[in-house]
Computed example of a mutant assay.
Amino acid sequence: MFPNRHDIDHPANPMSDQQAMAQVIEPAKHIVKDADLQDVSGGFRWESCNDQGDPPYRGLVEMSFKWPMDDAKGYPTEVEPNAYFEKLAATMVAHGWSDGPPPGWHSYGRVIHKDGVVAVATQDPTSGRGAIRVSGECRNMTNHRRDGTMLGFEITDQLRDR
Rank of each mutant, 00 (worst) to 15 (best):
Q123K: 08
E80P: 01
A94I: 02
G104T: 04
W105T: 03
R110S: 04
T77E: 13
E78P: 01
T77M: 13
H95E: 14
M92F: 10
M92G: 04
V120G: 12
D71S: 12
P81Y: 00
A90M: 15
G100I: 03
S98L: 10
V117N: 01
D99F: 03
G128H: 01
Y108W: 08
P81V: 08
V111T: 15
G109F: 15
A94C: 02
V120I: 14
D70S: 07
W97H: 10
W97Y: 11
D71M: 11
Y84E: 09
Y84T: 07
V93W: 09
T126E: 13
G128D: 06
S127E: 02
V120N: 06
V79L: 02
T91V: 07
A89V: 09
M92E: 10
T77Q: 15
V120A: 06
A89L: 14
A83S: 09
P102I: 06
P125T: 11
A90N: 05
W105Y: 13
A90F: 13
H113V: 01
H113E: 09
S98N: 14
I112C: 02
V118M: 14
P76N: 14
A94D: 09
Y75A: 01
Q123E: 15
V117C: 03
K73V: 09
E86P: 01
E80C: 06
K114C: 03
S127P: 14
P76I: 06
A121C: 10
G109L: 15
G109P: 02
V120S: 10
D124T: 03
T122F: 00
P81R: 05
Q123G: 02
D70K: 11
V118G: 07
P76K: 14
D115S: 12
D99M: 06
G116S: 00
E78K: 10
P103Y: 03
D115C: 05
P76S: 12
